[in-house]
Computed example of a mutant assay.
Amino acid sequence: MKPWQRNSILTVALLAFGAARLPFEAGLGKDLRAAGLVPEAMQIGTREKIGQTSSAVALGGLRTLVATFLNLRAFTFFQEQKWDDVAETYDTIVDLAPKTRYYWETGSWHSAYNAASYYLNDSELPALRRKEAWRASIYRGRAFLERGIRNNPDDWSIKANLGFLLQDSNKFPAFRNNDETFTAAAAAYTSAADTGKAPTYIRRAAFFSLARVKGKEKEALAMARSLYADPQNRVPTLQTLLLVLEAYENPDMDTAARAIEIFGTPEKAYEALSNHWFRTREKFPVYGVAKALESLERQLTISTKDSIFTKPLPPPAGPEAWFEK
């Protein structure tokens, strides 16, 4: 057999072998990506953003290294208060390292907290522009966490961060509809708790959000009773909300007697309910609280001068007050 014939046969054999391997390797690559063992192929837009050199490094399997350097760049943008550049850099970072929790949570924090605080206090912008920039930053931070959850459905921390953002009294006014926002917060916390990896307080946080949703009182009361059954969950906020929701269910209930039963003494009950009475910014329900406080003040012989009702409530807080100038 002549050399050229052997070479031709060898070439055909190699091509046939390669063609036979393609379906197997494609399927294997798909399975590995689905299992999170191999990252998705880098998009053209991401390659353009990080430049030719970094793209070559990333294609060489060192995406996390490139993401680390970009994180340093994002910190520089943060120091310079270039908020759009910070957000765009984190968009690129999570394209490179979508399974790294830190980048999702930090990117969201920069938008929803650092950028939002900047616009809240930046007196150089007109009030209306500051207000809309503040709101847009919080929306961006929320969307970033939601994207992180889609990429990491088993990560409890990213979900809990979303819940925290949505129930934060300095942030939820940005979303206009409190009931929808608290419902979403409860869902995020519940999903985090359902992973089985979250601390126990995350389930309580889900309840604290649900208790603030109008029309969900019955569901919230059932959850309160379930949590209260475990002594470790008997923190003042849960105890107070249990009383409040029971008062909603039964308006004729002796709320003072029930408060003493829950807290142990009239003094402890009065202190807890007084604190709850002043938490107006958090939008917690207060069914039966005034009635209980009035009864407890009589039992404790608190004078009219020292009554909780003579003390002013915290002033309203929200965009209308924050951006009035």
Rank of each mutant, 00 (worst) to 15 (best):
S108D: 08
Y102H: 11
E146C: 06
R129L: 05
I262H: 05
S295M: 04
I50A: 05
H276V: 06
R135G: 03
A186S: 15
P23M: 05
A34F: 07
L145P: 05
N152C: 02
Y287C: 05
K131C: 08
T190E: 07
Q167Y: 05
E25H: 09
F78W: 09
F323G: 07
F24P: 00
A205D: 09
A220M: 10
R204M: 04
V213K: 10
F164E: 09
I44P: 00
S191Q: 14
K268C: 08
Q239T: 01
E219R: 14
F77M: 01
Y102G: 08
D85Q: 14
R203F: 13
I138M: 10
T237W: 09
G148R: 00
Q79V: 05
L120D: 01
F207E: 02
P315I: 08
T240W: 01
T237M: 12
R234K: 07
L62V: 10
A193H: 15
A87N: 09
A74V: 00
E324W: 05
V94Q: 12
A56V: 13
Q79C: 06
T76Q: 10
A290K: 08
A186G: 08
I262N: 08
L293R: 01
A87C: 04
K214L: 07
A257L: 13
T76F: 10
L32R: 00
P98S: 12
R135M: 05
S307T: 13
V213M: 10
A269G: 15
L242G: 07
F144K: 04
N121F: 06
S303I: 04
L125R: 15
L37P: 02
T92S: 10
T237L: 14
W322I: 09
R6D: 07
R101Y: 06
L70N: 13
G141Q: 06
Y113E: 13
A193K: 11
N121Y: 03
I202D: 06
W109G: 12
T53C: 01
W109T: 11
P3C: 07
E180W: 04
